[in-house]
Structures are given as C-alpha cells and as structure tokens.
Design a protein around this nucleic acid. Structure first.
Length: 507
RNA sequence: GGCCUGUUCGUCUAGGGGUUAGGACGCAUCCCUUUCACGGAUGAAACACGGGUUCGAUUCCCGUACAGGCUACCA
C-alpha cells in the first residue's frame, strides 16, 4: 500500500496560539504541501479543567489568517475523524487494557494524596522530584505490588484507578529524529507515565500514539519539550502496532524570549506580540497582544517564523508561502533554540509592506484608516497614497499617521516649528504661491515644485526656508513624503485651502 | 539532583579539516534627500573552554562550562 505523507498538529485549546505553536503548524504545513501530503489537525481537548471556551475557534481563525488551513480537522472534517480527542474517548481504553493484558502496563490505585505523600517521603537533596518508576512502583498501590485478588476486588468495586506504562529496565531506546539525528535513552531513567486517567480520558502519551496509528500519520513534528517523553511513545508503538508503523519524528527547536523560553508574559514585558492574534483569556481576563492587530502582514508573520530556525542555504530571506513550500526541507532546520528578535520581525514586515502592490494592501490599509474614522476612501486615491507612503510604514498601523492626512485635514499643526521664523516676506511668498497655483494649467508634482522655486527665487527666499512651512500647512507636522507629491495627490482645492487656513492661523 | 537537547558577531544564521569565517537585523559614520523614510557606501562586532586525533582543527572525538527543556491523573 502506498504510504502517503500525513503530518499532524495537535494543539490543546487552552487559549492562545504563540509563536512556537504557529511555527510548528507552519513546518507541518510546508512539509505536507511540499510532499503532496495531508495536513491533519487534531485537537487535544483532554483536560476538562483547561479547556477554554472560544479557544478552538480562535485557533482556526489564526490559521486562516496565516493561510495555513489544514486538510482535516474538527472544523473541516475528514476520513479519520473525529478529530477532537474528547470525542474519541471510547477508543483508547481498549488499547490501554491490551497493554495491561500483555504485561506492558498496570493498574495503579494511588490517590493524589498518596502520590503527594510519596513525593515528599522520597524527596532528598539528590533527588528533589522522585518519580513513579521501577524503583518505587513496588511500594505503591498497583496491580504489580498488590495480590491478584486484591486487584480484582478493587477493580470490581470500581475503585478509581489509572493505567500506567511499565517501563522496562536496562533497555536502550534509539530513534532517528529528522532534525537531530540519532537520539537514545535508557529506559530505566524514564518514569511509569500515566496512560489512561481515572476519568477514562487518555493522556497525551496514549492518545498521540493511538491516533497517529488510526489516522495513518506518517510524520509528526512537535516542540523539543516533547523529546524526553519520546521513549514512552516509542515503546507504545512497539507494544501496540510495531515500530515499522511508527511515524517519523521531528522535534523542533524552541523559540526563546529575551531571557529563556518565550512566554506569553514576555509580550507585555518587552512590548512585542507573542500570539498570532489578540487573545483574551475568558477565565482570567488576561490579554495577550497578537501580531495581526499589532499591524503585521500574514506574509511577514509566516516569513519571519519560517526563518527562525530554518534557511534554504542561500542568502535569500524574503519568501512567500509558496516559495517556502518549494524550498522547505527538514534537514535544514537548525537544531538549536532561536531567540526571537522583535526588531528583525519588524524588518520583515516593513519589507513585505514595501514589496506588496497597493491593491494587495488595500484591505489592511482600509481597516487601519477606518480606525481613524476615515471611511470609504476613494480606491484609486487610496492606492496612490498607499504606494507613496508604504516605504515609511513598518507596521500597518503606521498607515494611520502616514496616510490619514490625505483624507482628512490635520487636527494639529506644529506651528511652533514655523512661528519663530515667520515673517512678512514669507507671508507674501505664500500669498503669491496661492495666486500662482490657482492659475496653473496642470496639477502635477514636478510643475508644482518648479513654480514654487521660481516664486521663491523672485522673492529672494531660499526654497528651504519655505519648504518646511508648506509641509506643516499640508500635513500638520514634520513628516510624510515629498511635499509636492502630497500636494499633487491632495488636489488643488484642498492644497490651497490648507495653505490659506494655516496662514490665517499664523496671523 | 536525574535525564534529554543545544552552543559561530548583541540577535537570526551560512560554512565546514587549510576561508581575509559570508549574509541579514540592530548599531555607528558618510552619501542621496531642504522633513521623515527609501536607496547607496563604509565600519565595529563571532567560531564557549580544555584535552585528544591530525602536517593542520572553528569544523571530527572526549571532557568541562554555560544555556534550554523535561522530571503532573498538562499538553
């Protein structure tokens, strides 16, 4: 049977989608598209306590914005559904029972209190966090330590219990990670992870193995934080389905913040977004800023994330999603963690704003302008304005300041920059300029500039002395593109109006 | 503490037994520009440390240091 490439991303809907999460999705997506395979999204809603309303929809909204929509998911459906772990609950128990039956797992009846007691009792200087492992399991209450009759009686009585994997001793587990090569573990150092919880729900360890098998996943990418539990998963594959069926694993390097692993709190602390889109946790009211609302283009967001730990070996840094699909390869993913640099992130965004034509930017710019109470701008004017100012916009939100004055008269004028040097001569100059501009046959930037300079020459005024005042008159401050370009786009009536109005203000 | 994974300019990285160790962000200086940007030029800035292997190690091996992750009936 043909082995198809099927990659899987399995987030938990606990709220928010941070940089590392999006990058994992991205690499999944790129790999799947590159190899003509399927991108499967499974939702890890195992822990009822941490399930957050609205979080799943938020997740899909983020993926949609970034252009990384999966082929199979709770939302899209697919041939191997359901894709929500909670809806697959019934599936897992039989596999856990099979493991018990085959001697690879066991029932454990220890209560949370007893576990806590064990951790305290065996805690030493050398071993600050004792594990439920082969050295301790005989002293706990489980089907390995208890007499068979006792176990049967407890089970019969419906005593709450979990199923734990029985990690073997003295075996070396090896596997080849797609990114870091051969990785090995000594089974004796890994604890007896819970596979099936007392509420009947599987833990990630069991669920991911069972689902990857049932959903015919061929490649699984996840964060490096999962590496320590890889031996558990590998053993589960060996016991349940055979190692030859196991997907290829790739453990992605972590994304680091200014100090240590990037956390959602880093955003507020250092002033940059860490989630794809704005997210407010309904439980705590905690708000985390998103790249989208901060003014990032999805193209830039994808681009910067892809380059955080990967490059194609050339010096190219700007890639469209399509180009990434064509060039992506796991072999070129760096194995070390990458520190997120907001300055570089902004550079990517700036580059994308510059390279996108005005028409592509139109929806974003329109949205930004509407926040400045500018609605229904003339599309052709909007595009010309966008083209003119985009090179000075690093974030989309910059269009508010950079383009707003084309559609609405400035509210504030930096008169202080003009007033001290304002005099009779300049006043006369501008009066003459207004008269001349009224008579001009055309209204193009080069002619406006020529006329301006001629009048300045006649009045024996250096153009530089009246250029800044003109700028203040038109845009209100010391910013914006070339003054004559602005005047040209503003049109004759509006330009003259703003000049006259400001002259009056200057008295 | 134990286990796992990493380590090239401040940051992202290229490279890989012999290189003037390359690029990008950021920074600095200059040019262009009578605003701010864009663009152009130049500059400062790196192979964590110690052993080994080798004619030769930044590159391979072993240690050490440092960093990060994991060490839950969370994922």
């Amino acid at each position: 049977m043909e082995k198809r490439v099927r990659v899987r991303f399995a987030p938990s809907p606990t709220g928010g989608l941070h940089l590392g999460g999006v990058r994992t999705v991205l690499y999944n997506y790129l790999f799947a598209r590159r190899h003509g395979g399927d991108f499967v999204l499974r939702i890890e809603d195992t822990d009822q306590n941490r399930f957050v309303p609205g979080a799943e929809q938020y997740l899909f909204d983020c993926l949609k914005w970034a252009g990384l929509e999966p082929d199979e998911s709770p939302l899209h459906g697919g041939p191997f559904g359901p894709y929500r772990q909670s809806e697959r609950k019934e599936l897992y128990r039989q596999y856990a029972e099979k493991l018990v039956h085959d001697g690879h797992a066991y029932y454990a009846f220890d209560t949370p209190g007893e576990l806590e007691h064990m951790r305290q009792a065996f805690k030493t200087e050398q071993n600050p966090s004792p594990q439920y492992d082969h050295t301790l399991r005989d002293r706990m209450r489980n089907s390995l330590s208890l007499p068979a009759e006792e176990v049967a009686r407890l089970l019969e009585a419906g005593t709450p219990h979990v199923i734990r994997i029985k990690m073997p001793v003295g075996e070396t587990i090896r596997f080849t990670d797609l990114i870091r090569g051969e990785v090995s573990f000594d089974t004796g150092t890994v604890d007896d992870k819970v596979l099936l919880k007392a509420d009947g729900m599987p833990t990630y360890h069991l669920a991911v193995v069972v689902d990857d098998y049932l959903m015919k996943i061929s490649h699984a990418f996840r964060g490096e934080e999962w590496l320590p539990s890889a031996p558990v998963h590998l053993l589960l594959w060996k016991y349940l389905f055979g190692l030859d069926q196991m997907p290829r694993w790739a453990h992605l390097p972590l994304i680091l913040g200014p100090n240590g692993k990037l956390s959602k709190r880093d955003g507020a602390r250092y002033g940059f977004p860490v989630f794809a889109m704005n997210w407010t946790d309904p439980r705590t009211g905690e708000f985390i800023e998103g790249f989208r609302e901060k003014g990032f283009l999805p193209q830039a967001f994808i681009n910067l994330l892809a380059l955080l730990g990967w490059n194609d070996g050339t010096e190219q840094e700007l890639f469209s999603l399509q180009e990434l699909v064509e060039r992506f390869s796991l072999e070129r993913v760096h194995s070390g963690g990458a520190r997120f640099d907001y300055e570089k992130a902004k550079w990517f965004n700036h580059e994308w704003i510059k390279r996108l034509p005005a028409a592509d930017l139109r929806p974003c710019v329109t949205e930004i302008l509407s926040k400045h109470e500018i609605v229904n701008p003339d599309p052709s004017l909007l595009d010309r304005v966008t083209e003119l100012v985009k090179e000075r916009c690093t974030l989309l939100t910059d269009f508010g300041d950079q383009a707003g004055f084309f559609f609405r008269r400035p509210e504030h004028y930096d008169l202080a920059a003009v007033q001290p040097k304002w005099n009779q001569a300049k006043q006369l100059f501008f009066a003459e300029l207004v008269r001349a501009y009224q008579l001009m046959a055309t209204w193009e930037a080069p002619e406006l500039e020529r006329e301006f300079k001629e009048i300045a020459a006649v009045n024996e005024i250096k153009p530089g002395e009246v250029l800044l005042p003109l700028r203040i008159m038109l845009v209100g401050g010391k910013f914006g593109p070339g003054v004559f370009d602005i005047a040209a786009l503003l049109g004759r009536d509006e330009t003259l109006h703003r000049i006259r109005a400001t002259i009056n203000r200057l008295g």
